[in-house]
């Protein structure tokens, strides 16, 4: 044969650029958006937490909370807002941080397969020497790494503000809460990835991811209203993660395992789903 095939010694293992190439590309493609989300999370933390000594840690605050309808307090998880850990749990982990990290994760999940496919770029990637599960799993790994990085930003900033803002949070409790926080956001992101991988439509992925997050939040808020509705809590990943206020009381590691485990399972199912269908039609 006159054509020279690539020498066998130059494949795979020897060249460092060939180790997880899609993972590297995904990280590089998204570093700007990751940075932007980190800035957003940092801004939220820097706005909320320094307010605690003057706001949460006072009798007036407790009186105000007591004056609110108890349903509302329960829905917003403001029951323990007068304590430093309770305040951090309710404002950062339970609300604004949850919102931001979930949106980030869902948008990444929906774009990893379906968004790339809709923009026409997935076709060219798949025409190269990669397998579809490899594409899905390397990109999932990149989403997980970015999510962990953002959760780490939250962990570090809260830790830094712990003393000055008189929060009184135990480091190991903060760590546990951060693991749950990351897993909870990743779960919605993986739902977005999965539906995107099945349907090839980014919008469906976004809807699924947002749906999981919203239903999870709402069923927690409603389930806390009365003992008759408590069964709703079992359906709420939000409640699995935050039911026992982990910033104050430490993580429920079983719940953490569920959140991360279901996320991993959804990633695996996404790989199978993409493997089984036509791309880019």
């Amino acid at each position: 044969m006159s054509h020279s095939a690539p020498p066998a010694t130059r494949d795979g293992r020897t060249d460092p650029a060939r180790i997880l190439p899609l993972f590297r590309r995904a990280l590089l493609d998204h570093w700007r958006s990751t940075l932007a989300w980190a800035v957003g999370l940092a801004a939220a933390i820097l706005v909320y937490l320094p307010l605690f000594p003057s706001l949460g840690n006072s009798d007036e605050m407790q009186d105000m909370i007591n004056a609110l309808p108890p349903e509302m307090t329960r829905a917003l998880n403001y029951d323990q807002i007068a304590s430093g850990p309770g305040y951090t749990q309710a404002t950062i982990f339970g609300l604004i941080g949850f919102l931001l990290l979930t949106i980030a994760s869902v948008s990444w999940g929906a774009s990893a397969v379906a968004g790339d496919e809709e923009s026409g770029q997935l076709e060219l990637t798949l025409a190269h020497a990669v397998t579809r599960p490899q594409v899905v799993l390397e990109r999932t790994l990149a989403i997980a790494v970015r999510t962990v990085a953002l959760a780490a930003v939250v962990f570090i900033l809260v830790l830094l503000l712990n003393e000055p803002a008189e929060l009184g949070i135990q480091t190991q409790d903060l760590f546990g809460a951060t693991v749950l926080f990351g897993g909870l956001a990743l779960l919605s992101g993986m739902a977005a990835l999965f539906v995107g991988a099945v349907s090839g439509r980014r919008l469906y992925g976004l809807a699924a991811g947002a749906g999981v997050a919203v239903l999870s939040y709402v069923s927690n808020a409603v389930g806390r209203q009365s003992p008759d509705l408590q069964w709703l809590l079992n359906l709420s990943p939000y409640h699995w993660a935050y039911g026992n206020s982990p910033v104050a009381n430490g993580a429920d590691w079983g719940a953490a395992a569920w959140l991360w485990g279901i996320s991993a399972a959804l990633a695996g199912l996404s790989a199978v789903a993409l493997q089984r269908r036509d791309v880019g039609i």
């Binding site: 650029a17 190439p21 590309r25 590089l28 026409g120 770029q121 025409a127 190269h128 020497a129």
Partner: peptide, 29 residues
């Protein structure tokens, strides 16, 4: 597929990276 070169009919290259880096990526796969 390692032994095939493919040019799709509709080419979408919308990344914010240089041609050189994009080619390096495709070379890696």
């Amino acid at each position: 597929r390692r032994k095939i070169g493919y040019l799709p009919g509709e080419l979408f290259l919308e990344q914010r990276i240089t041609g050189r880096r994009l080619l390096a990526h495709y070379a890696a796969i």
